[in-house]
């Protein structure tokens, strides 16, 4: 097998760009999974919703920023739907997410009119594109633009989770009983968290369609697993050095970039990329199992402690 290292080297900027875009989605997953303590499966649908809205808006002549805004709002609405199913209708969060996700499949088809829509980046002005990865003008360079967007988003989230409202959201995920005892409407904070998360996911989807030049109704399939992979990879590698909240979000983005870098290596090695989703799922499952195993099988009983006394 003839493996040219330069081919791999050349493919890396693309991997980083994809990692950055999906990193924004992973931050959305981080908000629900790590902060709100809810596994929200809406994201598989809301990512495609963001993409669908963005392409339709741009091809109808709207400015790219307006399209991004509309996509973000569409994501918020998707999160709102899941939130209402979960809180007002009392459906378990996972099931609520699945219901919204399935509904969004139809909604996305209605928005796009068909299952796949191209976005010709020669005709329409877009913010990011795979053609502009190696662009020399900095403000048009996709990697630079994505890096700036990511930093700005992290800064906004860092600010938000330090506010009274943001703190009440964190408290809700950590201890709902305590939160209610302190006068926090946990139903409201849950809905708010789901809206915020899916807004980010849809925003990411809107960037993704610009980047790849088309929108597809299936583009969000398995997004939750990629998001979780980014979260767990980021946490595994950076949790010891990144303690600050903003840095933890950054670790998630790095996790996403690493994920896509590994994907490029797998492609470069000419391994079967069809199996990549399977590998991803296995890796996520293992990472999620580690803390459990550690507690169950590898915890050393303290001297004279309760665990010791029981033996």
């Amino acid at each position: 097998m003839n493996l040219d290292i330069f081919v791999l080297f050349n493919s890396m900027p693309g991997a980083v760009a994809q990692g950055l875009i999906w990193g924004i989605m992973a931050i959305g997953v981080y908000i629900t999974y790590k902060i709100l303590d809810v596994a929200d499966l809406t994201v598989d649908g809301s990512l495609a919703t963001g993409g669908a809205v963005c392409v339709v808006m741009i091809t109808n002549g709207y400015d790219v920023w307006i399209a991004l805004l509309a996509a973000t709002i569409a994501g918020m609405l998707a999160g709102f739907a899941t939130g209402i199913l979960h809180t007002f209708m009392g459906i378990p969060a996972i099931l609520a997410g699945i219901l919204t996700q399935i509904s969004l499949y139809s909604v996305n088809l209605v928005i796009m009119g068909k299952s796949n829509l191209p976005l010709n980046t020669n005709i329409y002005k877009v913010l990011v594109s795979l053609r502009n990865i190696k662009e020399s003008i900095l403000t048009k360079n996709t990697l630079f633009v994505l890096a700036i967007i990511t930093v700005v988003l992290i800064a906004i989230l860092y600010w938000f989770f330090g506010t009274e409202l943001g703190c009440s959201l964190r408290a809700t995920g950590c201890n709902p009983n305590m939160s209610r005892a302190q006068g926090i409407n946990t139903n409201f904070t849950k809905v708010l968290g789901l809206m915020l998360s899916n807004a980010l996911v849809a925003f990411s989807g809107a960037l993704l369609v610009q980047y790849q030049g088309f929108s597809d109704v299936n583009m969000g399939r398995g997004a939750i697993v990629i998001g979780l992979a980014a979260v767990v990879i980021g946490e595994a590698i950076f949790s010891r050095i990144f303690r600050n909240f903003a840095l933890q979000l950054l670790a998630t983005v790095f996790g996403s970039i690493i994920y896509y870098a590994v994907f490029q290596v797998v492609t470069w090695l000419r391994l079967d990329t069809d199996l990549f989703k399977l590998f991803t799922a296995i890796i996520v499952a293992l990472f999620l199992a580690f803390p459990y195993w550690k507690g169950k099988y590898f915890s050393k009983p303290k001297k004279g402690g309760k665990a010791h006394a029981r033996n």
Partner: peptide
């Protein structure tokens, strides 16, 4: 301090003001 700050805002509308 964050826990105390949460308690300090009991019964108050939680806004976008600083959490602590």
């Amino acid at each position: 301090e964050e826990n105390l700050a949460l308690a300090k805002r009991r019964g108050k509308l939680r806004t976008l003001a600083r959490g602590i």
